[in-house]
Design a binder for these strands. Structure first.
Lengths: 359, 359
DNA sequence: AATTAGCACTCTCACCGCGAGAGTGCTAAA
DNA sequence: TTTAGCACTCTCGCGGTGAGAGTGCTAATT
């Protein structure tokens, strides 16, 4: 398969740019006029014919301009796109906003989703940082009433899980605190598997509680991603390809369905190296709901500790350069933020053999 | 203003029912045919004319059937609607689902949103239970690295807030635990105002921490509602009145904008008695974004302790009977659930004069 | 050999007119 | 008070039509 000539690549780029701009099929004369090309429309037409032949463009009907195909977008994204870096001022402004609200992970997630949606003018999604393997950091038991106890579980990485336990018999707060404290010191930094192996270290009340802890931690492990934050859903509705709201529905449905979305994220983003940016164009044959859409996905996190994913979803006709640069930027920004916040925890080896600085 | 005759009410009801069913203007002949009325279309026509005169109906153009006006819906909802109770089997099935996942508030919220959306075939929203006035239940401080400390704040009602503090100098875990313990015992059950009045009880590290606690609690108080759970957004997109996605965008935008939504909830639901169900039709002149929509809103909670709101948003042409019954049912179900879970806390008077059962 | 001008051809889309159909209001009779 | 009858109005779907945009092909040009 011969590669395209430079001029063909150039023209393909122009067509894609123009189509992204106008959302209407682009013709040869239009192209030479708008970009002051020093060739005639006939020449362009010939090249367009080649590109159509190769499957990078298509015509909606015999006598219309050309529209990029999925293949066309893919070729463009993988080989022709040039990085459109975010202006420094924008980067600084965004960073500033994040450092304003220091250390509030939930706020960060919302802000990240908001920034992504705003900058890309598309729908955005961000998942909260999630431990690759949950490891215990701190356990707290709070007596409520009678046999009811509020269990608060802090994972290495800062994720908090809560749950209400019903004990067999009422237990005082002091006894609960003591049990929690013992479990914390005994199992600090260990994952569910390791705890299970060492569970004979405790008995009685503590053993009962430990079962709940294990159950919760295993549940955390079974989920591939943290809570999902969405924003800018309405952006995508304003795109002309979604005037027939039926197509829009299918795409939004995907975002509403946490399991589907997590599946998608797990398969694409988490499977790849962190830091990189994946571009899914037209569902890639796998995701029927996204036939009309593209996603630009990335991941962030503190290596070996927590990971999260983030990305934007928009029409296939989206400004990929901009999208990729904003996703990449947010990805590194969030990585910095969570790494910075959790730097201490990265010292905890997964074998749990690090001393808890305990008095 | 004379009231309507029985027959006029009857016909208005029929028109509304039929319009909800078909989404097309309904004419006199159609009405007599479909409902086997024992009067002629001419008679119906006369009554329709009266109802139009009164402002309960309107015709899209001179020679079309009638469509209910906002006023028409309001009259219907406030005076004509008859309770369509949920079938017992459905109620039991829903309850069962909730009791399956005992004591996981977050799951309840998601399930509630899902059930509301599913049963009403519209968009739903549920806010997490939120204390009317935050009162301290438990404080935990967890050393992370150097001067960094994870603060976990449990409010009466079970709401958990976390935050990372940066102390002036490193402090060991034991000292932190002790400080947290002292603050918990001293200020258990008190609200921000009361704590502020008594803040001279502590000094040094504890005083510093208490400032953070107060800040966080005051922030909680300043927010009118908990986190918002949405579901079924795509349902509303499939309604025929939203094929022109512009109108749909405006409505969904409202749901995406937490501040606007909280404002709306605060003004309508929280201002009224709990348990009741409010119906907002066509934005009621205040909410421009909802011109085409209606909302059925309710609240739930444990009296004096926590409240949350829930509701559904759909086209004005929605099945109000069904909507109201499902909202009412979910409202009481959630009230039961949270009351049951938090029963202990209701013993805590707002003056904080209840002993913490401490060893 | 590559490019370009010229041209015939194709297809969409916006516009128009028209007739069917649904629904109305009015009047007069029951 | 209700109803049958009727003339009237307005929408909506239909086919036809012409402008316009864009194409592919061919022959001339560089």
């Amino acid at each position: 398969m011969n590669d395209l000539t430079e001029r063909q690549k150039f023209i393909l780029t122009l067509v894609i740019h123009e189509y992204i701009r106008t959302a209407t099929p682009v013709g040869s004369q239009h192209l030479v006029a708008r970009y002051n090309l020093d060739m005639s429309s006939a020449t362009v037409r010939n090249e367009l014919a080649v590109l159509t032949e190769r499957g990078y463009l298509r015509q909606p009907h015999t006598s219309a301009g050309r529209v990029p195909t999925e293949e066309g977008y893919r070729y463009f994204v993988s080989r022709l796109i040039q990085a459109t870096e975010l202006p420094d001022s924008t980067r600084r402004m965004i960073s500033h906003q994040f450092y304003q609200m220091r250390h509030d992970v939930e706020q960060w997630m919302r802000l990240a989703a908001s920034v992504l949606a705003h900058q890309s003018r598309a729908a955005s999604l961000v998942t909260a940082p999630h431990p690759e393997k949950a490891r215990l950091k701190h356990l707290e038991l709070i007596a409520t009433r009678g046999r009811q106890v509020l269990m608060v579980l802090v994972m290495v990485g800062g994720e908090i899980h809560q749950r209400i336990l019903i004990l067999n018999e009422p237990v005082g707060q002091d006894q609960l605190s003591q049990a929690a404290h013992r479990i914390t010191t005994l199992y600090y930094g260990k994952d569910a598997e390791q705890i299970r192996a060492l569970r004979s270290l405790v008995e009685g009340l503590e053993a009962d509680v430990l079962e709940w802890v294990l159950e919760e931690m295993e549940q955390v492990d079974s989920v591939v991603a943290g809570e999902i934050y969405l924003d800018g859903l309405t952006n995508v509705l304003s795109e002309p390809e979604f005037t027939t709201s039926d197509e829009a529905r299918r795409a939004l449905k995907l975002l509403e369905e946490p399991t589907l979305l997590q599946d998608l994220l797990a398969r694409t983003v988490l499977a790849h190296a962190p830091g990189g940016v994946q571009v899914l164009i037209g569902g890639e044959g796998t995701w029927e709901e996204l036939r009309q859409c593209s996603m630009v996905l990335g991941s962030y996190g503190a290596p070996g500790l927590v990971v999260g994913t983030l990305g934007i979803l928009g029409p296939m006709r989206m400004s990929y350069g901009r999208a990729i640069s904003i996703v990449r930027f947010m990805s590194s920004l969030l990585s910095d933020l969570v790494s910075e916040t959790l730097m201490d925890d990265s010292a905890i080896k997964s074998d749990g053999e690090v001393n808890h600085e305990e008095g």
